[in-house]
Write a protein that binds this DNA or RNA. Structure first.
Lengths: 204, 204
DNA sequence: GTCAAACGATAACATTTGTTACCAAATTCA
DNA sequence: TGAATTTGGTAACAAATGTTATCGTTTGAC
């Protein structure tokens, strides 16, 4: 990875944002946050390649990460992540299996990464605290719901409706990400997405 | 619900199957399992209707539950559950929001249901035990992965490939469930599923 | 056993969506 | 700045899939 390391930077505001969620001593907080490493990478940097085993999780301070997989020779975009999100190839990170996805930046990014073993330790410690247990469950649960909802929109809605929903609910995705990535994210060809936009531009 | 209640039945083998997963005293085990209620219902029984709030989770001793939702007037099947599975409208059960789905039996069923407040209590108690915490996380995680995989197959595979996968990985679904339910589960019309079967019957 | 409802196959036709090809605009980078 | 790459639009055609309608067959309730 062609990246500038800069781990001595003062703990960023981005980590401070989570301070309230951790009912632990300053010492513990220091210890936890010191496991995160700040790194800056250019656009189109591959953080993890499909088939590799994920050993890092990322927190995005600035930028965008695209998660995609190869389907019969063409890239299919599965998800986008932006500022304040944590990203990993979740199944590979948790189970140590080869990743189904590639993680790639679409913009120059400022990221904080943390090693799997530090995450594991941290989880063990922190899940002794009931309120933290619930938070962990909630986060996982919300991600489950997100997949469910996303899937639902594929079964329930037409491609045009999916595009309209995206435009309405996450316009920043459309603004920041090249359109052909969005096409495969919506499950259609670039040509068809162009048609849809054209159709919508004239009164539907 | 037109059902025969029969709660005094001796604790079924189905609950005993989980005994090993609960490192608790016999008294505790007694207490936990006594919260489950056995019930037998005919085919096409609606256990929860879309829009209602889920207050029960079900464990299937015998039979099949179909989870579906109404999409512009037609039923779209989202999932099937069989013996030894636990079923609820997960987001409604957890959050108390109106269910996005209807739960309906496709066969006469023998079920064990448990009330939400009993589940909540049980979870609180049981998650004090580290090994149980991990199990709970794993179950939730596996369900997340399942949604992810199912979604992936929609993006990646053709309808025929999805049908072939189903035939290969879960042939019992095709054997036990009426075909038109399977069509919408695969995201296609019944006519198209018929075409696919026909095509496959002659050498593809 | 009978009758109604549910189920599944098929044909004809309509619509949606993909594919390929080509071009123009925007962006990147040396 | 200028060339190469990326990105986005459009047209023509092909393929996939949906819709509607019809007709047997199976199933289930009584």
């Amino acid at each position: 990875m062609s990246a500038k390391h800069n781990d001595v930077v003062k703990l960023s505001e981005i980590l401070e944002k989570f301070r309230d969620n951790f009912p632990v001593s300053s010492e513990k907080w220091e210890e936890y946050t010191s496991r995160f490493h700040r790194v800056q990478v250019p656009a189109k940097t591959i953080l993890l390649r499909e088939g590799e085993i994920s050993r890092k999780a990322y927190l995005i301070e600035k930028g965008c990460i695209r998660v995609w997989f190869d389907n019969k020779g063409e890239e299919v975009t599965f998800q986008f992540f932006f500022e304040n999100s944590t990203v990993s190839s979740i199944e590979s990170f948790k189970k140590g299996t080869p990743s189904l996805f590639t993680l790639e930046t679409t913009e120059p990014c400022t990221l904080w990464w943390i090693d799997k073993k530090d995450v594991d330790n941290l989880l063990d410690e922190v899940s002794e605290i009931p309120s933290m247990r619930n938070q962990i469950l909630n986060i996982l649960f919300e991600r489950t719901l997100h997949y469910m909802q996303h899937f639902l929109s594929f079964v329930r809605d037409t491609p045009q409706e999916r595009y309209e929903n995206l435009l309405h609910n996450q316009p920043y995705i459309i603004q920041r990400v090249p359109q052909h990535y969005i096409a495969s994210y919506l499950g259609i060809s670039r040509v068809h997405l162009s048609r849809i936009k054209n159709k919508m531009a004239r009164g539907k």
